[in-house]
Amino acid sequence: MSVDRELDGPALLAQLRGWAEAEGFSQIGVADVDLGSAEAGLVDWLSNGFHGSMAYMAAHGLKRARPAELVPGTLRVITARMDYLPRSTPDGWQAIEWQRLARPGEAAVSIYARGRDYHKVLRQRLQRLADRLAEVVGPFGHRVFTDSAPVMEVELAAKSGIGWRGKHTLALHREGGSMFFLGEIYVDLPLPTTAPVEPHCGSCSACIDICPTQAIVAPYRLDARRCISYLTIEHDGPIPVELRAAMGNRIYGCDDCQLVCPWNKYARRSTLPDFDVREPLDSATLLELWRWGEAEFLSRTEGSAIRRIGHARWQRNLAVAMGNALRAGLDAGIAQALRAAREGSSELLREHIAWALAPR
């Protein structure tokens, strides 16, 4: 990448914001590439093994904190925020989600995963932003990312004023909470940077206190190995026995630290139909989802982020939730369904079914 041109930076930034709004983004920022202040924390996090089995987190070393090494020639990072609460989200949505978690026979899927795969949505729209920019300034070096490369997304978002890093490690915005996706465009254009904002968590520790598995081991420090989102999505082996009961009926991701966050009373609904809820992901029982064979799972999750975990992990997660439902005194055919599936199951699934059926 190389660029040698005069730019009207403020005018370009104003144009970018207009284009971004038309694409469904709610905020645009620009960060420089100096993330040196984050390097020590990254090294410490990795050395503690907090990344668990996500080997890719360590594979790129400090490139994650050095944008110009990941994409040579990068001068700035355009950061983008896209709200994802479904358009039909009712007022009082947090209370509705807490009620769902209190019904042991109902499946709880993280809100962000109930619609279309955000990777696809953001990547396409970020690329269109880059294309619009190229129409104005001519060809320039760039790469588009959304949770798809060794990028310190929250650090870049905080540096560019998209929000601040909350104690749960997610980005927070005073007027948008944390229910949003982040995306980036690495560019070789010397755009003007946007200023960071002051953090506003104060003495609040609600996210730390509420975590079912106590995965937030200190403010701003997450041990992914204990995080239900990691366990149900990233981790492909057995779920640690000591953490299974705490998972409750959460079968894909976990929203607890966001549901309890006071700032999420300002969370915004998406303007896009992409994040509308796909049936039956906001109302299915565990038993309904357990009955999906692999072909039905693939069909039902086409274009969804859920598909990436595969049917085997999906069933593993359901077996744990069904075991928790049995322990809560609910049966309604759950034990029979688990026993019927035991024969012919993989070793991984058999072990989780055995745990689910074991008397306590």
Rank of each mutant, 00 (worst) to 15 (best):
M1T: 12
D4P: 04
A11M: 05
W19R: 04
W19M: 09
G29R: 04
D34F: 10
D34R: 12
A38D: 07
E39T: 14
G41Y: 03
L42K: 02
L46M: 11
S47F: 09
S47N: 15
G52F: 02
G52H: 02
S53P: 05
A55E: 13
M57Y: 09
K63W: 14
R64M: 06
P67D: 05
A68Q: 10
E69G: 04
L70A: 12
G73T: 12
R76D: 13
V77W: 10
R81N: 01
Y84H: 06
P86Y: 00
P90T: 15
Q94D: 07
W98S: 12
L101R: 05
E106A: 03
V109G: 01
V109D: 00
S110P: 00
G115N: 07
G115S: 03
Y118D: 13
K120M: 13
K120R: 10
Q124E: 15
Q124R: 13
L129E: 03
L133T: 02
V136H: 08
F140W: 04
G141D: 11
T146D: 01
S148E: 05
E153G: 10
E155Q: 15
S160L: 11
S160A: 14
G163W: 02
T169N: 01
L170S: 09
A171C: 15
L172N: 06
R174H: 08
G177R: 03
G177K: 01
S178W: 03
F180P: 01
E184I: 11
V187H: 04
T193W: 05
T194H: 02
A195V: 13
P199Q: 04
S203K: 13
S203M: 15
C204T: 06
A206L: 09
C211K: 08
Q214F: 07
Q214H: 12
I216P: 00
D223L: 08
L231E: 00
H235Y: 11
R244A: 09
G253A: 05
C254F: 02
C254R: 01
D256I: 02
D256N: 08
K265G: 09
P273S: 14
D274K: 03
V277R: 12
V277N: 06
R278W: 14
R278H: 15
E279Q: 15
E279L: 13
W292M: 05
W292P: 00
E294F: 07
A295Q: 14
E296S: 15
F297Y: 14
L298C: 11
R300W: 10
T301I: 09
I306C: 04
R308D: 14
G310E: 10
A312F: 07
R313M: 12
W314C: 08
R316I: 07
N317Q: 00
A319W: 00
D331R: 01
G333Y: 11
Q336P: 03
R339E: 14
G344F: 09
E347S: 10
R350C: 10
R350F: 01
R350H: 05
E351F: 11
E351P: 09
W355V: 08
L357I: 13
